[in-house]
Amino acid sequence: MSTLLTCDSLSMRFGGLVALNQLSLAVSAGEILGLIGPNGSGKTTFFNVITGIYQASEGRVDYLGHDLARMRAQDIYRAGVTRTFQRSRLCLPLSIFDNLMIGNHRRLNHSLWFNLVRRSAFRAQFEEQYAQALALVRTFSQSLAERLFEAAGSVNMIDRRRIEICRALISQPTLLLLDEPSAGMTHEETRELMDDILIVREHMPGLAIIIIEHEMNVIERITERCIVLNYGQKICEGPYAQVAADRQVQEAYLGTE
């Protein structure tokens, strides 16, 4: 598989605190990469740097010829990188459909003329997008698909997470960053959610996923490769079984018996 993303000695410093320390890694197209490590080891910071929310202090992030470390968040999204947030960031007063369309921004027409005057063209685009949103949400939950025009704040936490994942998927990205998708869910719900993500992925060949997760059975089940961070540094890399057996990883994160 071809390489999609390459980080080259990426560093992020907040004053004296080094959140990412000379991190280098590569992700191939279509791969699912797990990112694990103790709290504060720099996992979410890594996502924030890649998506342009933080500006990296040093290093390059090469993605299909772009240097993400020097790009604005909105341009990174347009290049096909989307994410979910560790703490849900939905617009709760807006409808579920509205939230999905926020994620679909790059595929909608935003000109004043189109939106205000050409209402029949707008209608056509709206109906097309509605059909796509409906199909995507159905993969995750039928009952949710029936409630697309209700406020996102009116559904429970699990459905909110589903909406957030749909919001990140609907624009058909090439790289999806999932920040602890299972937080606050039971094992059963987590398993369902992961199955749904895998189903959607079958329709999107080439979609690479980086997932931050503390549920080790999720990591074990869906990832092909893992990277373990500690104090902003990569301490281990490889398939889960190999990583889990590593002494350093056990000491830093998994715990020894």
Partner: peptide, 14 residues
């Protein structure tokens, strides 16, 4: 609406 409600999410979605 999105601009009013969450500027960070806005940036992340272009």
């Amino acid at each position: 609406d999105a601009v009013r409600l969450d500027e960070t999410a806005c940036a992340a979605f272009g």
